[in-house]
C-alpha cells in the first residue's frame, strides 16, 4: 500500500543532490540540467537545516517537509521523489503498483552501467526510474506513472519506456484516464539507440490511447527535458506544469554554445512555456491534486450534471 511505501522509503529522501558538475551535452534527446547541479551546491548538508536555492531562506528540513517541500517564503517548489509525489497526488491506500519488479539489463554491455544502476537503486530506494500503477484521485480511478529524478536523472531506458507503455495499455484496457508526472534528463545514454526507440514506443502507445478517446493529463515538474519532452511529456490532452520548473528540449549550455549568446532569464521555465503556448496551465503543488480531480470530473463518462 502506498502509505507503507512512503514510510519505508522516507529515509532515502534527502534534499542535497548530486554534487558533481557535468559538462554539457550537444545532443537533443539527452539533456544535462547543469543549472540544477549548480543550484544544489547551496544546500546545507547536515539534513536538519535547508536553504532555499531561490530566496536563500534557511529553514528546518522538517518545516519544509511539512509544507510539501515548498519554500514558505518564496513558494519555490523543491523536487520530490516519486514516492513523495504519489503521496500528495493519489488517495491514501489507493495505489496498486504495476510491474514493480522490472529491472534494467545492460543490453549494450555499456561500461560501468551496472554500477551506475546499483548506485541509483541505493540512492533512490527504487528499482527503476518510474513508478506506475492504478490509484484514485479524490475518488476518481486513474492509471498513473511518476518518474523519479533520483534514479539516473529520471532518464528513459528500456524499462522506463516499457513501464510507461504498459501503463498506457492498462489505461486502454481498463478504460481509465492516464496521468504521467514527468521529471527527466531525457534518454538514457547507456542504452544507446534502444533509449531513443522508447520515444517512438511510448508515443505510438499514446496514439492508441488517443484513438480510444481517453484522457491523458501530462504533469511537468522540474526538470523535464530532452527525449522525454520530445515524446510522451508533450503529448497530453492537457499539460500542467509546476511553477518555475525547467522544461525544454535542448540543454541550455548547448544552446549558448551554438548561438554564442546569453540566454534570456526565465528561459525554458514553466512561465516561458506558458507564454509560448506550449503548456495549458501552471498550478501550485498545493492545488495540483484538486485541479487534476476537477479535470477528471469534467471528463468523467458517468458525469451527471
Amino acid at each position: 500500500m502506498l502509505s507503507d511505501l512512503f514510510r519505508k522509503k522516507r529515509k532515502y529522501v534527502t534534499i542535497s543532490r548530486d554534487k558533481e558538475l557535468k559538462p554539457p551535452i550537444t545532443d537533443d534527446a539527452i539533456y544535462e540540467p547543469l543549472e540544477e547541479t549548480i543550484e544544489q551546491k547551496s544546500d546545507i548538508q547536515d539534513g536538519l537545516w535547508i536553504k532555499c536555492p531561490d530566496c536563500d531562506e534557511v529553514m528546518y528540513q522538517k518545516e519544509l517537509d511539512n509544507n510539501q517541500k515548498i519554500c514558505p517564503k518564496c513558494n519555490y517548489h523543491f523536487r520530490l521523489s516519486s514516492i513523495e509525489r504519489l503521496a500528495i497526488t493519489v488517495d491514501d491506500d489507493s495505489f496498486i503498483e504495476l510491474d514493480e519488479n522490472m529491472v534494467s539489463l545492460n543490453p549494450l554491455s555499456f561500461p560501468d552501467y551496472e554500477a551506475k544502476l546499483e548506485k541509483a537503486r541505493n540512492k533512490s530506494g527504487l528499482k527503476e526510474g518510474v513508478i506506475t500503477g492504478e490509484a484514485t484521485i479524490n475518488g476518481f480511478p486513474i492509471i498513473i506513472a511518476v518518474l523519479d529524478f533520483n534514479f539516473m536523472g529520471g532518464s528513459m531506458g528500456s524499462v522506463v519506456g516499457e513501464k510507461i507503455t504498459r501503463a498506457i495499455e492498462t489505461s486502454i484496457d481498463k478504460q481509465l484516464p492516464l496521468i504521467i508526472i514527468s521529471t527527466s534528463g531525457g534518454a538514457r545514454m547507456q542504452e544507446g539507440i534502444l533509449s531513443l526507440m522508447q520515444m517512438a514506443k511510448t508515443s505510438a502507445a499514446l496514439a492508441k490511447l488517443d484513438q480510444a478517446g481517453l484522457l491523458y493529463i501530462s504533469v511537468l515538474t522540474d526538470p523535464t527535458t530532452g527525449g522525454v519532452t520530445a515524446s510522451f511529456a508533450s503529448l497530453g490532452d492537457i499539460i500542467i506544469a509546476e511553477p518555475k520548473a525547467l522544461i525544454g528540449f535542448a540543454g541550455q549550455r548547448v544552446i549558448e554554445q551554438t548561438i554564442r549568446q546569453k540566454l534570456p532569464s526565465g528561459f525554458q521555465r514553466s512561465e516561458f512555456m506558458l507564454e509560448h503556448g506550449m503548456i495549458d496551465l501552471i498550478i501550485d503543488r498545493k492545488n495540483m491534486k484538486d485541479t487534476i480531480a476537477n479535470i477528471l470530473k469534467m471528463h468523467s463518462r458517468k458525469e451527471e450534471i
Binding site: 550537444t26 545532443d27 537533443d28 520515444m199 517512438a200 508515443s203 505510438a204 499514446l206 496514439a207 488517443d210 519532452t229 520530445a230 515524446s231 510522451f232 511529456a233 508533450s234 503529448l235 525544454g248 528540449f249 535542448a250 540543454g251 548547448v254 544552446i255 551554438t258 548561438i259 540566454l263 534570456p264 528561459f267 525554458q268 516561458f272 509560448h276 503556448g277 506550449m278
Partner: peptide, 22 residues
C-alpha cells in the same frame, strides 16, 4: 540532430518531434 536554439525552444522543438512520432 534537431537544432538547439532559443527560437526552436520557443516554437516547441520537443512538441514538434513528439507530435511526429504520435
Amino acid at each position: 540532430g534537431a537544432f538547439p536554439g532559443i527560437e526552436a525552444e520557443e516554437r516547441g522543438q520537443g512538441e514538434a518531434i513528439a507530435r511526429n512520432l504520435l
